[in-house]
Write a protein that binds this DNA or RNA. Structure first.
Lengths: 236, 236
DNA sequence: GACATGAGACTTGTATACAACATTGCCCCA
DNA sequence: TGGGGCAATGTTGTATACAAGTCTCATGTC
């Protein structure tokens, strides 16, 4: 019956989206463990709101797949397994090339500029061993690719996939990714952006696919995923 | 200020999922027109519930992209345009081959049997000029493909994409699809299922891609989409 | 006449209260 | 001693009531 340590309450802007983002963040960071029960009243008290907005937040998280709930049955943090994580990568592997191709046809100079800025920031964060920032920038790149595609369906789908991939990869182990793998991927991302600048959808898509291939091929990355689930399976 | 004709209230099982399905259905069928305001109180009265479950239903529909709402700003049926519809097809064009490939590796004999049953049902419904049933079976095939893939992410994403594609294609015009196009696509679906039976992911994916190509190439189908938005743009 | 402005009505957002249902543990009985 | 039923407890689901914000339209001023 022990509930998790009530870390001090967050921003507490009283709108639902803030609750969703905060709770999703805690799930992704593992502060809410897979399988853990999330009682509405307890969470509501934790965030200083009533059950109504908290219910809406939990429903939203359920539709994103981060929690599961059954009628009168309670809400629980969803569980991930290694297979689901790889399935997630498979989905990413088809969405990202599509986004790259569409972005190559539609992106603006501002988009390209932002891509290059993010790439530089990412390089710096990785070189300076700031894994949190490295992950953040990686997420921003992914989000920006979706935005540049101009495909609203893709934007929504890629956002959820991105959150789940962050969930599936524990932050502590990102540092273990071999430097050569990371550099190869960074180079491929630059190739992708160059192809987008040349308005070459095919080349952009190929580069995007190569990024995923490099991720798959990376023994380091695989270890990141596997280790994540060893940790998770310890606390069911 | 005229609200839509209150068609007689639906099943009225008082759970939220039923509300979501019913309202989504009405949006898809055009009974709730794009841009139309959906007042919580009015809808709640229409379905004989209070605003709380209705709010949850509307939030869920917002996360699926069928309605849009801003804080204190009201909820409106989302609008579709032809570009968004084609973007939707592009997404489908990458998801479906992936699902086919994974299903080829994972599907059970029961899955295959269901596929073949649905194919027969679809043929019969089309021959007998029952467009409603034709669409229903088509949806079931699509859903079943996702299920057979065993990829939970794919199942969730394909479900939303499927609903939106139904939304983007008006039912009245399905009959206008040329018979040869329909038959070609039915044959390709059979090829896909055969490839799945042979546990041949590459061939299954190729067949799935060919299905989308046939859809794209179909002048009749294109007319279905375009006509849908001519109709929609009449009532903004 | 055009525009700023404020009161009013209206809609959404949230808290509280209560109803419906699941679960647990006890007691009774075989 | 084991199993079935029942009450006690607790959590979720929903209705009602009220608070907070937005929009409209009339009014007054320049």
């Amino acid at each position: 019956m022990t509930q998790p340590t009530p870390t001090q309450s967050s921003p507490a802007r009283s709108n639902v989206q803030a609750l969703v983002d905060t709770i999703r963040g805690r799930i992704i960071r593992g502060q809410f463990a897979p399988g853990q029960r999330l009682k509405e009243e307890w969470l509501a008290a934790e965030f200083g709101v009533s059950r109504i907005p908290m219910r809406e937040a939990l429903r939203a998280l359920a539709s994103e797949g981060f929690v599961r709930s059954e009628r009168y049955g309670g809400t629980f943090v969803a569980t991930l397994d290694a297979e689901a994580a790889h399935d997630l990568l498979d989905v990413r592997a088809v969405l990202e090339p599509l986004a790259a191709a569409q972005a190559a046809m539609r992106c603006t100079p501002e988009h390209l500029e932002t891509f290059r800025r993010l790439l530089d920031e990412g390089d710096r964060a990785f070189r300076e061993r700031r894994p949190e920032d490295t992950r953040t920038v990686k997420g921003q790149l992914y989000e920006h690719l979706a935005l540049a595609s101009g495909n609203s369906t893709l934007i929504a789908l890629m956002r959820v996939v991105r959150f789940k991939i962050e969930w599936a990869t524990s932050i502590e182990l990102i540092e273990q990714i071999p430097e050569e793998t990371r550099n190869l991927r960074a180079k491929l991302v630059r190739d992708m952006v160059d192809a987008m600048a040349d308005r070459d959808p095919a080349r952009a898509a190929t580069a995007a696919a190569a990024i995923i291939d490099a991720t798959y091929a990376s023994q380091g990355w695989r270890r990141v995923v596997e280790a994540r689930f060893e940790a998770a399976s310890k606390s069911p």
